[in-house]
């Protein structure tokens, strides 16, 4: 177990390093000279360009730049945003919590709704309610998140605020602030749930259907268990196991959803920050959000793997 843990954490660290290196490749190597991009459309002299290059460290050979970059990344230094003229990490720190709040709430709700509907659908497969819920899930899965967000916003009119996280004139006490944030969060949260729960529903449903052919369910029935006990004690727990991994594997989807939903609803989180960075384009900022978002998903996957080990005795032993 300890060795496995060490192996997993080691593997994750290598992946993280790979993400950081990919960030360098994407934002330093492919775009070419960042100084040209920064000064595009402005009259600058050759001396000014050279000075800017020296300040950014891009006059050195690529290998040396990479080493500097790695060293800085380890210290948590991802450079300074062109647009905000502030350290990238500081900006990310400010925007982290709104995203965690939004994605956390909607993921938990989506998982609960998706799994519950998935179990129901599989157990009564072919029934009207199963066909309707599966069909609806497929349709929602086909919807671009941002479009659904815009439609919801259009349909609800003035019922909910269409953007931001709080009104400026809300009283500063905790209760009013929380209610205000919750009010702002309704639409973005609904949008994300609507698109994400469909995945979980389909995965849980097919996983349970697969499990329902298992011989040990016949054993359970032969023992005299009632049908709902067969389902509750044997089929569902076993079908849940593969679903756990898939829930985490689909976290990338949640991140994608966060980017577009935050853009549509101007929710001041990492997604909106990414959007602001790509419209600039503010490459250091985009690099920062890229590394943080990718790193977060990788870390969550390590947790998923460890969780799976705890839950499934078959993997635990090997």
């Amino acid at each position: 177990m300890i060795r496995h843990l060490a192996g997993k954490v080691g593997g994750a660290l290598v992946s993280l390093l790979f993400v950081v290196a990919l960030g360098f490749l994407l934002f330093r190597v492919i775009p070419g000279d960042p100084v040209v991009a920064m000064t595009r459309g402005r009259p600058v002299t050759g001396d000014q360009l050279a000075e800017l290059r020296a300040r950014l460290g891009v006059d050195k050979p690529l290998t040396e730049q990479f080493v500097d970059y790695l060293a800085a990344a380890v210290r948590g230094d991802f450079g300074t945003s062109y647009v905000y003229s502030r350290p990238v990490l500081e900006l990310i720190g400010e925007r982290l919590w709104p995203t965690v709040l939004l994605t956390g709430t909607s993921t938990v709700l989506a998982v609960v709704i998706g799994l519950w509907l998935g179990i129901r659908g599989a157990w009564r497969r072919g029934s009207r309610s199963d066909r309707i819920s599966t069909g609806l899930a497929l349709a929602q899965w086909a919807m671009p998140t941002f479009w659904l967000g815009m439609l919801l916003s259009l349909a609800t009119g003035d019922l909910f605020p269409s953007g931001g996280m709080r009104y400026p004139d809300t009283p500063p006490d905790f209760l009013s602030q929380s209610l205000d944030v919750a009010h702002h969060m309704v639409l973005p949260c609904l949008t994300m749930i609507a698109v994400v729960y469909a995945q979980y529903l389909l995965v849980m449903r097919s996983s349970l259907l697969e499990e329902m052919h298992a011989d040990y369910l016949t054993t359970a029935r032969a023992k005299g268990l009632r049908d709902d006990l067969v389902r509750r004690r044997h089929a569902v727990p076993n079908a849940l196991l593969p679903t756990v991994t898939l829930v985490f594997l689909h976290l990338g989807l949640v991140v994608s959803g966060a980017i577009t939903v935050e853009t549509v609803f101007s929710w001041p989180g990492l997604g909106l920050l990414t959007y602001e960075a790509l419209t600039g384009p503010d490459l250091p900022l985009l690099q920062g959000t890229f590394v943080v978002l990718a790193g977060a998903v990788i870390t969550m996957n390590v947790f998923a793997d460890l969780l799976y080990r705890v839950l499934d005795p078959r993997v635990r032993a090997s």
Binding site: A214, D215, Y216, T218, T219, A220, A222, K223, H234, P237, N238, L241, D312, P313, R314
Partner: peptide
């Protein structure tokens, strides 16, 4: 009671 064919699959893999 029944002793099922293929004990491998007839036992629930995640229960003791």
């Amino acid at each position: 009671s029944v002793v099922f064919q293929g004990a491998m699959h007839a036992l629930n893999p995640v229960h003791r």
